[in-house]
Nucleic acid binder design. Structure first.
Lengths: 296, 296
DNA sequence: CGGAGGCTTGAGATACATCAAGGATCGTGG
DNA sequence: CCACGATCCTTGATGTATCTCAAGCCTCCG
């Protein structure tokens, strides 16, 4: 509609080297350039049935596109807008004092990010495109103004922020309590679920991130991630071929707490302590199935 | 920053008569204390200078009291209100499928909790009083309605939620990247800072939580927490006597990444590998004080 | 005074990190 | 089109930080 959608990419600080891709497909042409409120709610997965919301057809939100490797925002940059992923994959990261990246999330379709910038008015994290992305730009002022007009929408804003908080709580719990195997398993399951939500296959998909990024996200090294995937493959839970993952036994992945002592690891254990007989030894955190009362 | 004014601030003295204690669900409303908007903003540490806010004197928020060990809300309980800590100490926890607690936070004066209930309309975590507590009850509907009247206050709501999100991001980063020693050190520093904010001594204070709870919060076992505190004590960073902590070297605690190879651990290392000469061994994560060399 | 948590400390086990080497993949330029 | 380098991934050998198990002490409270 409008003529202003030129603004293709606002690439700030020099992204790695990704100049020169003239023959790149026309990602600028693809995808929508504006969304109305109804579409916004739809992608956010929040009910937007209210007549007033649907009626607001002329209120539009601009889309912005980013290419693989480009930064959407950096740490410390003045905050002015939130983003919703319309298509594509990203990562958000924190940078520690040594320059090491710590991955916080992998936003994909329907996810909101940038919320951490509200408090200090500067983004607290950095968002990077892992693929070409189409994002919906949500100027914060515009958003809150809208919330005042549509009460239902206001609640949705709070709700989505709350959802993010709950997600991070689950993350903390996972990092604090689960084994490497359980973390990787849950990561795969959550990816699988997200793909299903987006209409892709939940059984066969491609990872958009490196082992290093997965490891950072899960609090593990890339070698441990790689080994764990290989182990899952060996016992038939999944198939792995580089970035391609096939989910073979979703149920087992969902409930996995520690790898069964058999399989690949058995040989290792056997060889290492052939003489020493370690009896049963599986207490406390327990094998996959174990009921426990107590607590508190 | 005293909240004197109108309010008789009772530092956690046992509230008089609390009818028995169903301990579950029921929060005893003592209904004696009320805060207006200005006081609310004050305890939340957000600017509330706007005339309109101060003017709203008759809009009052109810306080509720809880005794040590009581639950403010439990997981799955219908959500209707947020809480701000006016005085006292609490913990929020997640309960896993085996009934094990995972501590998420230790709310104290000025902290907001209950936000995780907005999304599903049920609390996603459980809040338990670690001491007698005086909380400000914030009915969610009342809160959002107020935000619509006072724009400045509306922004504050978003801001405080954002602050919580940033806090959790920092937590994730810590769990994913730091050693046990660094986690404990940072925990002590953050406690010290909070005590200072509240007007207590930042150098000498009492822990309100057990080693087990600290360990759960930091993703460690209680033994590791205990040992780490003992080690800090041995090298003079702190003094420890049960729940009483004295901060001796705040700067060292702030920058600590891993314990210097000397001290208690030295003897252990020495005895264990007397013959094998482990060179300097301080690469990568580096010793306590280390300028930022490379990285990235 | 006794019992129940809570804390400390030691010895040993192990899960994961670290170090290292080689193979697969892909974009780029000759 | 192929060779090349840069990543990325896999796998093995080894090290070690943290957990686990166990025992004893302390402190609070009925």
């Amino acid at each position: 509609m409008s003529s202003t959608q030129i603004l293709p990419v606002r690439t700030e600080s020099t992204p790695p080297a990704l100049n020169a891709s003239p023959l790149e497909t026309g990602w600028q042409r693809q995808g929508k350039l504006w969304s109305n409120l109804r579409e916004l709610c739809e992608v956010l997965r929040i009910p937007a049935s209210s007549a007033s919301l649907i009626a607001d057809e002329e209120l539009l939100f601009q889309h912005v596109q980013f290419k693989t490797g480009q930064r959407i925002h950096t740490i410390g940059q003045p905050f002015d807008a939130l983003y919703i992923v319309h298509s594509g994959f990203l990562k958000t990261v924190l940078i520690d004092e040594f320059g090491n990246e710590q991955v916080l999330s992998f936003p994909m379709k329907g996810d909101l990010f940038g919320v951490d910038g509200i408090h200090t008015r500067r983004y607290a994290s950095e968002a990077v495109a892992l693929s070409n992305c189409d994002l919906i730009l949500l100027p914060f002022k515009k958003l809150t103004a809208l919330g005042r007009i549509h009460l239902e929408f206001e609640h949705s804003i709070y709700s989505v922020m709350s959802r993010e908080l709950v997600r991070e709580q689950a993350m903390i719990s996972m990092l604090g309590a689960l084994s490497a195997e359980a973390r990787v398993a849950r990561f795969l399951v959550s990816l699988s679920d997200r793909y299903a939500d987006m209409g892709y296959s939940s059984r066969l998909f491609n990872l958009r991130m490196t082992r290093h990024e997965i490891g950072s996200y899960l609090g593990l090294t890339l070698e441990t991630v790689s080994r764990t995937l290989s182990a899952f493959n060996e016992i038939g839970l999944i198939t792995v071929d580089q970035r391609s993952i096939g989910i073979k036994d979703p149920e087992a992945l969902k409930t996995l707490r520690r790898l069964p002592p058999s399989s690949a690891r058995a040989k290792q254990v056997a060889s290492r302590k052939a003489r020493q007989q370690p009896r049963e030894a599986s207490q406390r955190s327990g094998a996959p199935c174990e009921a426990f009362p107590t607590a508190v």
